[in-house]
């Protein structure tokens, strides 16, 4: 890059034709890449939302961390001895390539050795989970109580019977309706792992009891607390999210 007589100290001298071309091309590429990057980020922000029917495998990190950790390799899908897990195909509304299951189709069988988690190479399915009962894949919600057969007075306890930790995650609570009728209401407790068996077995054509991602029901903070408790080996406490003000002592 010898410019002969040109003064290399000045700006125009420094910018000979070769350099100018190189810099212009570089700047053009950088700008185009910047625009592409922005477009990519906009796409990611829209495409990363998890729909309410899509549940993550047991041990999955909170969704924001999961999105950074999961490389979409499908080793968990291969490790699953059932047909529960799938990798989301593009355009299906679930973050592309990530593992998920839909409770209504094929729920999680809650294998005690958690093979999907063991197969995960990245830690997106957290290795700290060693007791499947501590998994929080989702949480069951009685989404539309008026359609619940039991609440209508019929003898249905399909969800209660389907629950793999029977009597702990779902109980049938006696409910006195105005007018003298007594019915049983399925009530979900903190022990629910979100396996989806209850939603799978729910009798009406559209399930009344639904399992949804924990963050969508309880928020990330609550999930984080439960996760850390699980990591510490503490039993899941069934505490109300907001504690009542202390009652004044009366003697």
């Amino acid at each position: 890059m010898d410019d002969g007589g040109k003064d290399r100290g000045t700006f125009t001298g420094f910018l000979d034709a070769g350099r100018r071309k190189f810099l212009l091309q570089g700047a053009g590429s950088a700008c185009a890449a910047g625009v592409a990057g922005l477009g990519l980020m906009a796409h990611v922000q829209r495409a990363r939302a998890l729909p309410s029917q899509a549940l993550r495998p047991p041990g999955a990190l909170p969704e924001a961390d999961f999105d950074a950790a999961c490389v979409r390799c499908g080793l968990c899908v291969r490790a699953c001895p059932f047909t529960t897990l799938n990798l989301a195909p593009a355009g299906g509304g679930i973050p592309v390539g990530t593992p998920y299951f839909e409770a209504r189709s094929v729920p999680c069988e809650m294998c005690t050795d958690i093979p999907c988690k063991a197969a995960c190479p990245t830690g997106a399915l957290a290795p700290v989970l060693d007791d499947i009962a501590q998994a929080r894949m989702g949480v069951a919600v009685l989404a539309d109580p008026e359609r619940c057969l039991s609440l209508q007075g019929m003898r249905c306890d399909a969800c209660f019977q389907a629950c793999p930790i029977k009597g702990k995650a779902i109980t049938m609570e006696r409910l006195h309706k105005p007018g003298g009728m007594t019915v049983f209401m399925p009530s979900v407790h903190a022990a629910c792992t979100g396996c989806g068996k209850c939603e799978h077995d729910c009798v009406p054509q559209v399930a009344v009891i639904r399992v949804m991602p924990v963050a969508q029901v309880r928020g990330e903070l609550e999930r984080g607390r439960r996760r850390s408790e699980a990591a510490l080996g503490m039993p899941p406490a069934d505490r109300p999210a907001v504690s009542a003000p202390p009652r004044p002592k009366t003697r």
Binding site: L40, M41, H43, V44, Q45, A47, R48, A64, D67, A68, C70, V71, R72, P95, V96, G97
Partner: peptide, 11 residues
């Protein structure tokens, strides 16, 4: 880095 996700893997 900015989105905290494997952004390119979306496409």
């Amino acid at each position: 880095w900015l989105t905290g996700s494997l952004a390119w893997e979306y496409v």
